[in-house]
Amino acid sequence: MLKLSEVHQIFEQGTINEKHVLKGIDLDVEQGDFITIIGGNGAGKSTMLNAIAGNFVITSGKIEIDNTDVTRMPVYKRAKHIGRVFQDPRMGTATDMTIEENLAIAYRRGKPRTLKWGITNKERDYFREVLSQLDLGLENRLKDKTRFLSGGQRQALTLLMASFHHPKILLLDEHTAALDPKTAAKVLELTVKIVGENKLTAMMVTHNMRDALRVGNRLIMMNKGNCILNINAEEKKGLDVPDLLNMFEKASGEKMENDRMLLD
């Protein structure tokens, strides 16, 4: 499904600010996997998702989606297969455009944009129906600009937009981190529901260890640009947070450092 081989990423190579962020990541993601990713500050979690999405061309290594080499493919071409939700709720929608306009843009992801109307009445009905399933009252606000939505509403909307047409991979980069705990729980619940119902393959970065254990079938722990733990469904079942911290310390030889993680 998704395969990363020996992926290295060095930012500002050859300068005094050189940063070797990914140090030879190897990863095999199977169809239907829901992988949670945890790790300390600067472990390379977001960089790995950005590399998969194509925000930059990796320094070396290979990325394949369904046996197609996408290593040099720009973001907009990979987007056909990839749905994304970002940490910053403002990043997922065009804020000066309405809810229905945003949905219509996402509904055409990966298709050529023509001179036909940007949205049809049939789509409007469909959007109203899927929005009502979110249970946030958005179905009555199709013509509101997304700037007027709360962070949680925007993330829910972005999640919906990202999962249209069953993307091959759904990338979630700490998408609940900027929300208050109650809203975060609700958005996570919605994430699990959407991934489950659509049988999506997903990768979710989180700083919440409990969420990382509770959700998904696989867990990856990253440290300083390496995947130091790759826990499968069987092993994952019996684990709790202290186990996870122990495993981290054993694998990395140091204590987990993540400001936000300590707060949880």
Partner: peptide, 16 residues
Amino acid sequence: RATGDNKNMISAQGVD
């Protein structure tokens, strides 16, 4: 319109 509004979002939606 979305390009000027949020370039990040629109490339994630498959637009050059």
